[in-house]
Amino acid sequence: MNMKTTADRATGGFFLLFGVLLYFVIIPKYVEVADGAWLMPSTVPNAIAVVLSICGALLMLKPTAHRVQNTREMMFAGLYFTLLAAGLLLMSYVGFVYAAPVLALAVMLLIGERRPFWLLLGVVGLPAGIWWLVAYVLERALP
C-alpha cells in the first residue's frame, strides 16, 4: 500500500467514525427533540451522519490516488495557523490598532521579507490604511 492510498483510507476511516459519533453521541445530545412536524430537527443531521459513515467506508474500500501535500508544507501551514490564532487572541485583548502591526510584522518576517521599506509599509502603512478605510471612510468599528 503506498502513501497516497493510506491518506485516503485514513480520512475514510475518520469519516466512518465521525458519522457513527454524530449519529449515536453528538446528535442525540445536541439536537432537541420536537414533535408534531413532518421533519424532526434530527432527521437531516442523522441522514448526513449515515451518508458520512457509508462514504467513509466506501473510501476505505475504494481509495483514490490523491497525493497529499508534503509534511513540511503542512507544518508551515500549521505554523501560520497558530500565528493567526495568537494574533486574534491578542486582538481580542488589545484591539486591532495594536495587534495588527504585530501580526503583519510576524507574517512578513516568516515569509522571508527583510527589506526595511516593505516591512515599514506592512507594519505601519497597511494597518493605518485599513484603519482609515474602515473607521474613517466606512465609519465602522474595528475588531
Binding site: S92, A100, L103, A104, G112, W118, G122, L142, P143
Partner: peptide
C-alpha cells in the same frame, strides 16, 4: 512582494469578517 500581498489579504479578511459578523 508576496509578503505585503498576503499580510494585507489576511488583515483585510479579519477586518471584513469582524464587520460582517459584528465581533471577534
Amino acid at each position: 512582494p508576496e509578503s505585503i500581498i498576503f499580510a494585507s489579504a489576511l488583515l483585510l479578511c479579519i477586518v471584513g469578517v469582524s464587520m460582517a459578523t459584528g465581533g471577534i
